[in-house]
């Protein structure tokens, strides 16, 4: 059908744990999206990736029907895994949690290139570095 798009929303959620609580309920509910149908499908499709953040890009059509695709994990998730840490530093400018070689930053930037809206790899790397900095990770 002439599926005219109303909006596109990306939700970054823990795999297998979508529920009507925030952010899913209030964000999708305002558009009249069937929350239970989304949660059920998201949880089924991400069950095998438990422990990761798996973004879902949801396209909402003008008649409130929707579809969604899963995206690769966010940069912070990749950085955490690259360093083997659970979370970023809460005082990133004072307390550093680790160091990452530039080559690794490049790999992550290349992997995420599609999702980052960056013009080139250098631009994507700057975004990855920005995220790393905000987590207390030094790039060397």
């Amino acid at each position: 059908m002439a599926k005219k798009i109303k909006t596109v929303i990306k939700l970054q959620l823990p795999a297998g744990q979508a529920s009507p609580a925030p952010p899913v309920g209030p964000v999708l509910g305002q558009y009249g999206v069937n929350i239970m149908a989304f949660c059920k499908d998201y949880n089924e499709r991400t069950a095998s990736q438990a422990g990761s953040i798996v973004p879902a890009e949801i396209t909402i059509y003008e008649d409130r029907s929707f579809t969604f695709v899963l995206k690769s994990p966010p940069v912070a998730d990749l950085l955490r895994r690259a360093l083997g840490v659970e979370k970023g530093s809460s005082i990133p400018n004072v307390q550093k949690i680790g160091k990452l070689p530039r080559e690794r930053v490049r790999q992550i930037a290349e992997f995420k290139m599609k999702d980052l809206n960056a013009a080139d790899v250098e631009g994507a790397m700057r975004m990855v570095e920005g995220t790393a900095r905000s987590m207390g990770i030094e790039v060397e």
Partner: peptide, 30 residues
């Protein structure tokens, strides 16, 4: 838009249950 991913990741560290990113654009058909 180009900053969305980085900002969302910072937000996501604090938000309950995750973070939402909505692209503001004039959409056409699929």
């Amino acid at each position: 838009s180009s900053e969305a991913e980085a900002v969302a990741e910072v937000f996501g560290r604090f938000g309950y249950g995750g973070v939402a990113i909505e692209e503001k654009a004039i959409w056409g058909c699929e």
